[in-house]
Design a binder for these strands. Structure first.
Lengths: 252, 252
DNA sequence: TCAAAAGTGTTAGAATTACACCCATGT
DNA sequence: ACATGGGTGTAATTCTAACACTTTTGA
């Protein structure tokens, strides 16, 4: 019998006895909020410095506890909206971490209370992401490559979210949720480059693959970005995309 | 702003007021247990007829509440092991459903208690899956295509699990977790056929693609399955597969 | 007129598809 | 010997990767 590798992520916990009484749970939502800074070719993640126990002074993923009458996704969105403002964003549930011992507030003896974390990942563009500047919130963008040791199992959650992000980009049209209504093909390319790395594909090949898929409409409108030939503005055609849903697309 | 389609799955709930008090949760685990019957070319899912309220007499996904000191995955595995016995199985977390109102035990006024369902999906072969025969458990295999209306949001969970299963099969080696140590290539092909449908690929092409990937070892041992030329037994080589992990495989 | 950015085209090589065909066994 | 299932080979087509080249703008 084998279980899968995803599961391994949450299994490095202290071994603990299982008794047949039911566990009581507090449910939190933790967000991996990625922002793509195509200008500087950086992929960033939003972190918050904790000022409370446990893990006081550690950086952590922004999170919250779920309120009465609030859906999980609504809680995730609330956490996000309290901290940053953005018009185009993508939000999706990631994974639920709930091993006993993942939160030190679970006292070693008293198994009464467990802390469950339903994680979400969000993607938006750095240009649009305005941090709502309350210094008390202790928020900061970190380059994904340079994230320090985080509170709880948040490094694991981040790693998991990063993997999901790269996969999503390859076979689903997340990019168009994040870009504005109208965009140039080069903007799409830049987005892919900063997330997947420069050499994921040649621009001209990327371009023709994308257009061949047939769900990008050329508006005919041209825009000038500094020097160089003006670029066409495209828009995502949801109707043309619909039949491709579920099919394994490759944007590589 | 757009959220993704997965999220839509859990958003058809009654609208309810959010107040700032925290919600209390009971956490359950629900399992989508698929079994592949290659003999009869059927994909089955294990259902349990409820004998308690709510949804008494409805079929439902087998589930349980999480116990003190028990990990989510352990709870999922316990539910499974109580009901069926199998040597080779694959188990993976699916999605967490937690919208307010998904369980009728959440009284309309009292938002105190919420029922969260962390769903898991399992895959095993029908030949190996022995139902532990306690009539009181009211268990039965259903063909996925013929599942009736289920309790709670279990049809949604099943649909979601089914989608995941088909995707997993295409780009990850789940099949080899489910097959015995040694297997014939035709057994692999049959597995793919019953899950993805007859015409997903020609046998000879499937065969060469699979072998070219290089992580199947020919043991040299031949076995006869009735008439016809004897088939070679192969085994999955985890070491040879390791470098291919994360890479986008295509078993189509 | 030249550099920069947008966009098109070409070509060698790899991968995919749809088959035809040979091999080894039970009856 | 022939049906059955196992296994190999191949030719047409499509896809991919790498790169050359043309077009349109600002300076």
């Amino acid at each position: 019998m084998k279980f899968n590798s995803e599961v391994v992520l949450q299994s490095n916990h202290q071994v603990s006895e299982v008794n047949s009484a039911l566990a009581d749970f507090k449910v939190g939502v933790d967000n991996v909020i990625f922002s793509v800074d195509t200008q500087h070719n950086r992929l960033l993640v939003l972190l918050r410095k904790r000022k409370e126990e446990p893990f006081s002074n550690y950086w952590s993923l922004p999170g919250t506890l779920v309120r009465q009458g609030e859906s999980l996704q609504a809680a995730a969105y609330r956490t996000l909206a309290e901290k940053i403002q953005a018009n185009n964003l993508y939000l999706e549930q990631l994974y639920t971490f709930g091993d006993p011992g993942r939160d030190p507030r679970e006292a070693p003896e008293s198994f009464g209370v467990r802390y469950l974390s339903v994680s979400y990942f969000a993607l938006l563009r750095y240009e649009e992401a305005k941090i709502i500047a309350k210094p008390a919130l202790n928020l900061s963008w970190y380059q994904v490559k340079e994230v320090p040791q985080l509170a709880f199992d948040h490094n694991q959650i981040l790693e998991y979210g990063y993997r999901r992000l790269r996969n999503k980009l390859e076979y689903s049209p997340v990019a168009f949720d994040v870009l504005p209504e109208e965009f140039t093909l080069n903007e799409v390319y830049q987005l892919y480059c900063t997330i997947l790395g420069e050499n994921f594909s040649d621009y001209s090949n990327f371009r023709s693959r994308l257009l061949k898929l047939g769900f990008l409409l050329d508006t005919g409108i041209k825009v000038c970005r500094g020097a160089g030939r003006p670029a066409s503005l495209y828009r995502f055609d949801a109707e043309a995309f619909a039949p491709l849903k579920d099919k394994p697309l490759v944007f590589i």
